[in-house]
């Protein structure tokens, strides 16, 4: 089993099975560019730095990739199919502890940076699920978004929305 070492922004090393990394478009490109798949290359001696991902987040990403090992890798955006995506129970449980917090958002940003489409899609779906059935102020409170509207702006938006609500 070939292991490739990922290095997080806080200098933590994570040896990861080569097969798992096929889910990440970014890492896959780096592997190709660094010739890490060549038999002559000592992959273990060439860690891949990921300066935009912290150790605790990278650990979660690897955990997610291990669970989804062997899943077909999503190609392109496939927007038409996205609307019907359901977050599987395992993933729901995976995201839930971090929900409404910066950890979930950091995971989403990491999925975007690492180009792990399935993780990004499910993570975003989980976020969008938290908006459903909530009012604007409820969403604001749950996600800790400060209210930046003046009363006049709030009134203007209310008027714009009122005939379609």
């Amino acid at each position: 089993m070939v292991l490739i070492t990922l290095v997080s922004s806080d200098e933590q090393n994570f040896p990861v099975e080569r097969e798992l990394l096929k889910q990440s478009g970014t890492i896959e490109t780096l592997i190709v560019n660094m010739n890490l798949d060549d038999e002559d290359t000592d992959a273990a001696a060439m860690p891949i730095p990921l300066p935009n991902v912290k150790g605790d987040v990278l650990e979660k990403v690897i955990q997610w990739m291990e669970h989804h090992k062997g899943d077909p890798v999503k190609e392109g955006d496939n927007e038409d199919n996205n609307a019907e995506i359901v977050v599987p129970q395992w993933d729901d449980d995976f995201f839930k502890p971090a929900m409404y917090g910066s950890k979930h958002l950091e995971l989403t940003v990491a999925a975007s940076y690492l180009d792990i489409k399935n993780l990004l899609t499910l993570s975003c779906k989980a976020i969008s699920n938290t908006f459903k059935g909530k009012t604007g102020p409820q969403i604001r409170e749950e996600w800790g978004v400060p209210n930046e509207f003046t009363p006049e702006e709030e009134e203007a938006i209310r008027k714009e929305n009122e005939w379609s609500e």
């Binding site: 609307a83 995506i85 969008s128 909530k134 009012t135 604007g136 938006i157 929305n161």
Partner: peptide, 17 residues
Amino acid sequence: FIYQFLDNSSLLQLRKV
């Protein structure tokens, strides 16, 4: 992705956030 998953009522509520 996030906005694409939302229905119209949720989008309207997001306008108020």
